[in-house]
Design a protein around this nucleic acid. Sequence first.
DNA 1: GTTGTATGCAAGTGCCTGCTTGCTCTGTGT
DNA 2: ACACAGAGCAAGCAGGCACTTGCATACAAC
Lengths: 203, 203
Amino acid sequence: MISRQKLLEAAARVFAESGFRGATTRRIAEAAGVNEVTLFRLFGSKSQLLTEAMQCMHPNAGLNLPAEPGDVERELLTWSEGHLEAMRSMRHIIRKTMAELEEHPEMRQVVCDAKTPMFNQLLSYVSLAWPSATAGDESMRRTACSMLVSAMFSDAIGRDVVSAAYPVPAESAAQKYLTVFLRTMGPVRRPTAGRTLATAAND
Amino acid sequence: MISRQKLLEAAARVFAESGFRGATTRRIAEAAGVNEVTLFRLFGSKSQLLTEAMQCMHPNAGLNLPAEPGDVERELLTWSEGHLEAMRSMRHIIRKTMAELEEHPEMRQVVCDAKTPMFNQLLSYVSLAWPSATAGDESMRRTACSMLVSAMFSDAIGRDVVSAAYPVPAESAAQKYLTVFLRTMGPVRRPTAGRTLATAAND
DNA sequence: GTTGTATGCAAGTGCCTGCTTGCTCTGTGT
DNA sequence: ACACAGAGCAAGCAGGCACTTGCATACAAC
C-alpha cells in the first residue's frame, strides 16, 4: 500500500517537470523507486495514475480569511502572503496543468477547485469589511478583488520567467499588491489605530 | 520557398495545440500540407523548426503608447484593450510556451520579448503622465503598473479556464482594470474635460 | 537540352512508449 | 506448514517517434 503513495507523489513530481506526455511510466516508476509493472498493477493505466495524483492536491488548505473581519489589513496580509507563497511553490505544476487543459479537460477541475474559492473568499470578506457605500460600486469591488488575485497568480507563475515585469522584490510583493488594493478600496470599515499598512508603504 | 513559410505557421499552430512533445513532425508536415521529408530538408530538425517558428512571433507590433502623454485615459484604454485582445488570442500558445520553459529554455526569450517591453512602455508613459509628487512613491507606481499588466495577462490566459475568478464581462474587462488602475494613480497631470473613465465606470 | 533546385514518395532505422506476460521472491496470517 | 497478497524482474509486443536514404518528378535558367 505504501507503493501507491510513493507512485502518486512521484507522478505529481514528474508531471510538474515534464507534463503529461513527458511523464512516462518508466520515469514515474523510477522516481518512486518502484517497479514499472507495479504501477500498472495498482493504477491500471498512466492516465488513471495521473488523474488520481492531481485529485489529491489541495494546496490552500488552512488558508482562510475569518468569517467576520477583525483587523482587516493584518488579516488580508496574512492571507495574501500565504496564498502567494503557496502558488509560487506550485508554479511548475500550475504552468504544466494549464497547458494540458485542451488535451486533458479533467484537469480543469483541479485548477478551478484551487482558484475559485480563493477569489470567492476574498470577495465575501471584502463585502463585509467595506460596505458598499464606501467602496464604489459593486463592479469596482469585484474588479479590485480580481486584480489582487490576478496579481498574485501572475507573480507566482511569471516572476521566475519575466522578472523585469515584477519590479517589486519577491518578499514584499504581497504587501505591495495589498497596499495598492487597499488604496483602491478606500478606508476600511473599522480602521485600526496607529500605523497602518497604507502609511507603512511609503517607507 | 513557400514550403518554409507554410511549415513555420503550421508548427506554431500545432505547438499551440499540443506543446513541444505533442507537435510531432508528422502532424506539423500534415498541417502544412507538405511532405515530412521536406521539413527535415528545410530545417534539419524538429527543434530547429520550432525555435524558428517561435522567433518569428511578434504579437504586439504596432501597439505603442505615445511618447508624450496626451489624452491619458483614452490612450491607456486603447493600449490596454489592444494588448488584452492580443494576449487573449494567443492564450493557447502562451500557456504552452510557459509550460515548456524548463525543458526548452530558449523559449524564455520569446516570453520576455513580449512582456517586458509591454511593462516598460507602460511604466515610462505613466512616469510622464503622473509626476512623482501626485502618484505616491515610485514603488507604488511600479506596483500599480505591474498589477495592471498582471490583471490583463491573467485574464487572457485564465478566463476560459476559471471564469468564476473573472467577474467582469470579457468585453469591458480592460476598461474596468484600467479604472481601478486610474483610481490608484490619482488625478492625471492634464485632466481631460467632461466625462471621464472614472465617472463612466459607475454605469 | 541539360543542369540545378525544390519537392514528393516509399521504405526503413533505431529508439522510446504504454502496457502485458510469466515467473520468482518475500512477508504475513492461520 | 500452508496459502495468499504484494512486489520485483526479464522479456516482449505493437505502435509512434525523429530522422535518413534512394529515387522519381516537376520546373526554371542557361
